[in-house]
Each structure stands twice: as C-alpha cells, then as structure tokens.
Design a binder for these strands. Sequence first.
RNA 1: GGCCCCAUCGUCUAGCGGUUAGGACACUGGCCUCUCACGCCGGUAACUGGGGUUCAAGUCCCCAUGGGGUCACCA
Length: 553
Amino acid sequence: MPIVQRWIRRLSPKGTSSTKRTRALVRATFALRRASRSAWFMRGRPRSMVPGGSRVKRGGPRRRRHVGGGVLSLAPMTNKGDRVRFAPSPTGYLHIGGVRTALYNWLWARKTSGVFVLRIEDTDRERSTDASVKVIFDSLKWLGLTWDEGPEVGGPNGPYFQTERTAVYAEFVDKLIARGHAYRCYCTKEELDAKRAALPPGSFFRYPGTCRHRTDHPDRPHVVRLKAPASGHTGWLDLVKGRIDVPNESQQDVVLVRADGIPLYNFGAAVDDITMGITLVARGDDHVVNTPVQLLIYEGLGYTPPKLAHLPMINGPDGKKLSKRHAAVSAGEYRDMGYLPDAVLNYLARLGWSHGDQEIFSRSELIEKFDWASVGRTPAQYDAKKFAFVLGAHLRGLDDAALAADARPFLSAELRDAADADGSRYVAAVGTVKTRATTLAEVGDMIDFYFRDTPSEDEKAVAKFLVPASAPHLQALRQVVEGVTPFTRQPLEAAIDAWLAETGLQMKNVAQPARVAMTGRSQSPGLFEVMEVLGRERTLARLDAALTRCGAT
RNA sequence: GGCCCCAUCGUCUAGCGGUUAGGACACUGGCCUCUCACGCCGGUAACUGGGGUUCAAGUCCCCAUGGGGUCACCA
C-alpha cells in the first residue's frame, strides 16, 4: 500500500504543493463546521458516514515487536462504550498535561459513546483544597470537557470524592487481607524514618517486611500493606507503549491504607476504578511504575484489570519538565489570556497524537479521528510558536460575529460600552483584525483605536509620518474622501485610485501618514476598511487632527 | 544505584523491510501589496552509535550511549 501511495505521489503533477493541501484542509475544516452545526452530533455515527471517514487508519497495534504473548489483548478500535475517567488531585491549578490526559479520555468516551467520569482524588489531606476543586471544575467546563458522572452531576457510582468513600475502601481492604494479599503493619512512621535515615547515603530504603508474617492483632494503630509476590512478574499490554513487564522482586510491600483509614493513591485508584466500572485507564506515564501494584490489587481482589494507556509527558522547550518558568501551565491562565478553548484542545491533542498530515482539527473532528494507536510514545516539548499558529488558525476560522462575541469579555470597560452601543460596527471592527490576532485579548487590543476618541499613538510612527511634508497629501486625501458615498470600502478605494492616477501620486507615499492619522500606528488593517469602520465623521476628524499635528511638528 | 519507559529535521510528527525519508511550526528567499498580517510559490534542515538478521534495515534483534519516569503513611 505505501508503495502505491508513493507512486501516486511520484506521478501526480508538481502543481499542488503540500502546503496548499494543508491550507485547503484548514479552510475545509472550518467551512464544514460553519455549514453544518450537526457536525457536533456526528460522534455516534459509523465512520463510513463521516466525511473523511474512509481515510481513518486501521486500528490495532503499531509496533510489531510487542505483539503477542499478552494476557490482555488490544481491543479493536471500534469497540463501543468504554468507561473512562479523569482523576485529578485538587492540589493546585489544573496542569496542561492533565488537560491533555482529560482530553484523550473525553475524546475516547465521546467517540465510543462511552462514559467520562470525573473523580477527585483528595486523599492528600495536607494539600487538597476546595479552591483547587473549583479550579478543576471551572477549567474543564471552560474547555467543554463535560463529565457524565462525577461531582455536581452525580451518577450511580458515587460519591466521586475519595475522602467520602472510606467505607468502600474499608470493605475492600478487609477483603484483600482475607484473601491473603495484604497485611496489617504496626511499624510506626518514626521507626521507619529512623531506619531510612540510618542508611548509607545513595542507597534506597526498602520495607524490611517486619510485620509481614505476624499473626497477632494488637489493638494499636496500623497501616495496611500489600503482600507483594516475591517471584514471577506482572505485566500488561499498554495501548500506547506495548508490552510492559516488571519483575515482582522489584515490588515493595507498599502501604495501601494509612493508619487513619484513608487510602493511598494506588489502593484508592484501584478500588475506585473497580467500583466505578472503569474499563480503560489512560493517564500520564509517570504512573507506569504504579501500574503493577494496581494490577496486583486487582488480581488479589479477583477482578479483571481495565485496558491501560500511558501517555508520555509534556516537557518544556528545554526538554525538562514543563513548569511555570517555561510557559503558562494552568488551564486558567490560557483562559485569561484569551486562548480559544477549541484551539487549546487542538494543540494539546496534536502534542503526542497525530492523524496523517492534518494539523488543524475542530472538536468534532478530534472526536471522530482520535485513536490510541496513533498516540506517540515519545515525550513532547511545548512549543509556544506552534501553539500560536494553531490559535490563529482557529481564530480565523470563526465568523466575525462569533469572534466578536467571544472577544467581548476581553474588552476594556470603555471599549465594551462602545462596542455594546454599536454592535454592528464592533463586529465589523473585529472582522478587520481577524487575520492579525491569535488570542481574544489581542483582538481587543487591536480594535482599540476604532473606539477611542483619540487613538493611542506610537510615538515613532507619529514622528516619522506626521511631518510637514505629509500635510499636503493628507489635505488632498481629506478632500477626496469627504464626498464619497456610500462611505464604504469599494467606493473609497475607487475614489482614491482615481485621485492617485490624476495626480501621479503613489499610494505608498500617502498611505503611511494616513494610517498613522487614523490609527495612531504604522501597522493596521487596510486603509479603506479602516475608513469604512471608522465612518466618515471620525475619518475626517482624525485627518484634521493629524493635519494640525503635521504643522505643529 | 534498582526497576521501567523512550530515541527521525531546532520543535510536533509521518514512516509498519525496497521512499528522491513526507507534512506542519519555526527560520529563510520570493510573489501579492497602502503597512502589518492572511494567502501563494520556493529553500535550509533529521533517521544517536556499534554489531547482527536479510538480496535489501529509519523500519526486526542485541549491545552501547543519551534522555525521561519512579523508588513516601504524595498523587
């Protein structure tokens, strides 16, 4: 098949460049979205009914080296109805890596008509806060990553805060102990810390198994530990990484439940995934070390583990862990900067996942095309420039009215009043800066000059162009423009063209002074559209004001 | 250090044993043009190294190197 494709490429005329194809694809994406709101509802349909569906890659494992020998088998990619979950801990902002994890889960749930559950892993009492919980909800809602079961919406498997599920954990920990896969440990944290401290530097502590074989049950505070098997191995066929096997000797008797009865991550996650009927777990690949422990818990409890997918990390531009130092890392920051949610999702989706040569995806296309087989295994680096490109592409794909509505919250109070007072002029203004902005906040900044009584001025531009030599041109331009009716783009252009032809003047000599006169800047949308949006009165007033400046300079 | 994962342009990636190693962002030359964008045409740029397997290896295997993850009564 690849050979055939290569031949087609070879034989096809050089005329259509790939860039051209991509641009066409970008345009088609948005045209489709505009034309058909129903695209939102296509998610449940068979691929054959979906545009481009026949080009969807075949599912299945992509690396031969890992195929075969697994207990778990890769489910066919068309499998319906996975129950997936996103399980953040409310200890701060919602990290962009977490957003991507949530996104992949959400996409998969939507694609397979499955269920996306949100669970709050708040068992770290020290660090969990209600404020962080709210941040998670707000961020997810802003991105449109709505959950089917979880806090606020409820569901049959609640509660969805782990701290409210202690009864469930108590039941399951008893069961695990009864089945001989866990035991009570009476060693205190202080004792263990002392042993840890006594270790020579550079070596690593391992629980010595002190309580592993004791048969008494003193009435003392205790934790519960996993009785990890001493031999054999534990493994699974990861949906993105392929076969992973870990020798059991490398496992420790990790603590499952604290002395206060609150579970630790591994136990809480496993029990909740069991009781919530989760069939596919996708999470960051920093969790692959935890997976064998959870598998052992599943096994010890007698349950079949879910399908597992571990996503590579997102690194900063320097290849190190992405931090505030590199870029905005929380979803909230992106919202505040005026990033379009769909564009954020698009960029994040493409960071670690691909679909042929396509770069720009609408939300519904993401749902339609996402698959685990196309998730990459390599860590990705955050690239602000590419992000900006994706942002711009989505912005340009919006129609003027929609963009104007989205941008409204980012206007200054003064601007917002002006915009509300004349909605159609506001929308027209937005239309003139659409190809120039990448964020909603930028849209606000860029249309500022239309609405202020006197535009804020770029000093250098003024000094360069509003000079005595410009005065005659501006004076003449004023006369030309004054009587044009209607005061719109084409008539204005025609009138000015005629004037230029008559006088032999060059547009480029007239344009910059006029631009600075009307916008205060040396860079702006096209002059004629600026004049149209400004309207006759303001245009003339600004030319007059500039004339004075020219003389005064 | 133990265990685990990863390795194609600067970056995101395509590649499923036979390719002039493709695309995108960025960078860059040009076109369009009243500026800046948008758009259009072009260019620079990659298979970490070494062994195997094979008629043939970016693709399969092994080793090395380099990166990353993790070793808590955090998640």
